[in-house]
Design a protein around this nucleic acid. Structure first.
Lengths: 211, 211
DNA sequence: TAGATTGTTAATCGATTAACAATC
DNA sequence: TAGATTGTTAATCGATTAACAATC
């Protein structure tokens, strides 16, 4: 059923499927079973079949999934078959690192504009992009039809940047700042905070290693 | 009950509580209710109370939680009251960015060694650390009692690095490379892959913005 | 045909939320 | 005491997994 609402967990797995399918495709593998996918990605095969079945009948009983066809379908589902322009605010080390990942992103998705509030950063070159002042944010986002915003500024500035993004009409935000940002309900926010990741890892360490 | 197993979702929320509690503490707020926490962090108050109750009775009925006391308790739970040394492999832009986050990490947790396979990177300075060759990885991890490893190398190298970490006795890994890595069951791995984050965000964009 | 694997239903498992007695 | 808020149980909601008929 096209119109039932899909859980976030399912959506988060789709890019992982896609990445491995692309790898298989590069290796000229033409067909893959949910079994194969599951063992490679550490997921239950039934879960993979169910995830995909939310969107259509992509497989063939007794055979599995056609790699190229499934890639095409997942790209459509994730809207990666459209051009998706991304803006980044915060031209520090992290921002620079992410800009360099442009190559890793799916062809149509690209960081196309970088902004910073600090005078010293403006005009700098970052992976072929020139760092722009915040005053140009709104116009640039509208002109380039930028739909996703990335925040890599310090925590104290993150909410301000989010507000600017929302005002400029961005539809989704990926926030790397270590703070929860508030946005209107129609805007999607993902938090990608490496400090909380690392701190939760500590929980799983063994008791006290050191004396 | 101390010995019941705690769900991953709970553990992932603890650092978020901790971060906000630290902020309250800096602002000299001494007491906080699950209500307050919930509205600030966009979480259900009942969930917060339940999360905390897994570990003990930290609150006072009719009053709420003592900020300083709760900070202390969560730090204990997450083992952030111990010194936790972290190693990072991959001295590229992302690695450099993460090293600079050292200040953001909870006092006792620190990146204390950086490695890279490329000759040109070795000897470089990264936030007061000298980039070391891979040949020194095992010895350094043992000598400095490093317990967590961060992977910021290209996808093709990530599994190799993970294997080296495991062999050297690391207990947990935070992997930034866009690939699923395999480790023995006693090693904890978190994946912090920004490309899949961004791709799943695309799903939530509105239909077709452009013509 | 025999073997393999999907799509899907039913069963299980787990996580979130509501409700409220206990009590500060 | 009256009001507030916890800790916890029960109810709800949602996600994962098992099982299997359909079928390539």
């Amino acid at each position: 059923m096209k119109s039932m609402k899909i859980s976030e967990a399912v959506v988060r797995r789709l890019p992982i499927y896609l990445r491995f399918l692309n790898e298989l495709n590069r290796m000229n593998v033409t067909t893959v079973s949910s079994q194969d996918l599951g063992s490679k990605l550490d997921l239950n095969p039934a879960q993979i079949r169910k995830d995909l079945a939310y969107f259509g009948e992509f497989g063939k009983k007794g055979i599995g999934y056609d790699v190229k066809y499934l890639i095409e379908k997942i790209r459509q589902i994730l809207k990666l078959d459209q051009r998706i322009q991304v803006a980044l605010v915060g031209a520090g080390n992290l921002g620079r690192a992410l800009c360099n990942y442009n190559a890793y992103l799916q062809d149509n998705m690209k960081i196309v504009a970088v902004f910073d509030a600090e005078k010293s950063k403006i005009g700098q070159n970052m992976n072929n992009l020139t760092v722009l002042p915040m005053s140009e944010l709104t116009d640039t986002i509208r002109e380039l039809q930028i739909r996703i915003g990335i925040i890599t500024v310090p925590a104290s500035e993150a909410q301000n940047v989010a507000d600017r993004f929302v005002e400029a009409g961005i539809e989704a935000i990926l926030n790397f700042a270590p703070v929860i940002i508030k946005v209107p309900p129609h805007i999607r926010v993902h938090h990608a905070d490496f400090t909380t990741d690392l701190q939760s890892l500590a929980y799983y360490l063994n008791k006290e290693e050191e004396a």
